[in-house]
Design a protein around this nucleic acid. Structure first.
Lengths: 194, 194
DNA sequence: AAGTTTATTGACTCGTCAATCAACAAAAAA
DNA sequence: TTTTTTGTTGATTGACGAGTCAATAAACTT
């Protein structure tokens, strides 16, 4: 049975399964066996490839974060001008790829992980900085020195919408989330354009 | 040693200790022994009074939520007019009583708990509804039919600021949080006052 | 063909922890 | 003063789960 070159395949399967299990149970209280089972292998093999549970969590985080990053970069490619680029960032943040029950659940638990595991904290900090910087670049030409405050506000609201999603019933509504953010943005832009 | 009438005292101590321990470790992975030790008793006694760990968590949640509720109610007493009342709600939300490292950490973990434990979900839903309704009452005379959207936006941003606080270093800055929220509010009010 | 590397798992170890219990002590009620 | 109620804990049980290991097997190397 043993085919060679399994490592990347197994690792990918485990990362995916980790996200699903964390999102499904809504907590970090997931056993390695659960994850391995969902990924179709024994828990021993999971340990073999990742060395431990924490490494699996971190790999899952990196994956979610890099998916999000890619989505944002992609959306920015076809957006001209500050306003369009802002909209692109928001759309990407609430695209069906990212704004899904399991992924949102995973995000929440990554924040919890960040309280204990320095590497998790580092990864989340990178995400926040990158988002902030992306927003800032668009906002500065629009609102000048108000940009910093606005970027913080938008960042907080994005995270807040994600957080609140975990309590909502039914499928996530990304469009509604984006329009809430845009309403905030428009109000601030109008107030600053006079 | 056994003095009578210990029950409420012990329970209060356990609730407090639960919040501290959850906030301190930043996760729900707290043992009953840890909590009991901090509260100055044996783990068996903690079980005796609460029956189980989950009940302790829920009691801690109720306590945090009721402290917050009391703070808001108190602040609203001495506030006249919609604008002042809005400011009062925001100030209360970021008062030093609530906006503290341990409490913020506890909040985060209550969201996690809400994913698994229906009663926890119920409690958080109550908090969200009450906040929304408080905001709505103030906002309607100010912005009419925009009130609903704005209340949701403010709620999300409040939660987002709490969430982001868990990554920040140093002591929480409630004043900064309030002014961020007020900036948002002012922008929306201005845009709607014309 | 012999040896090495990679893939894979069942069984096991070892620690942890929630929950229970038996036992003891003091106050209150009878 | 016996009995009951309330307070309290050390010791124990029983379950569960992370991580290890020995063993097996297929594929590559020499």
């Amino acid at each position: 049975m043993p085919k060679l070159g399994m490592e990347p395949i197994r690792k990918a399967a485990l990362v995916k399964a980790t996200i699903v299990e964390i999102g499904r149970t809504g907590s970090l209280d997931v056993t390695v066996s659960q994850i391995a089972k969902r990924a179709g292998m024994s828990s021993a093999l999971a340990h073999h490839y990742f060395g431990g549970k924490e490494a699996m969590f971190l790999a899952a985080m990196r994956h979610v974060l890099s998916l999000y990053g890619a989505e944002v970069r992609g959306a920015l490619l076809s957006a001209e001008g500050p306003e369009a680029r802002l909209v692109a960032i928001l759309r990407a943040s609430f695209s069906p790829t990212n704004f899904r029950r399991e992924v949102v659940g995973a995000w929440l638990n990554f924040y919890v992980l960040a309280q204990t595991v320095p590497e998790a904290r580092r990864l989340l900090a990178i995400y926040q900085r990158r988002l902030r910087s992306n927003l800032l670049i668009c906002l500065r030409p629009l609102v000048g020195r108000e940009a910093d405050a606005l970027a913080d506000g938008l960042g907080a609201m994005i995270d807040g919408v994600y957080l609140r999603e975990v309590l909502k019933a039914g499928p996530p509504d990304g469009a509604a989330a984006v329009s809430m953010l845009l309403a905030y943005l428009d109000a601030e832009l109008k107030g600053n354009r006079q």
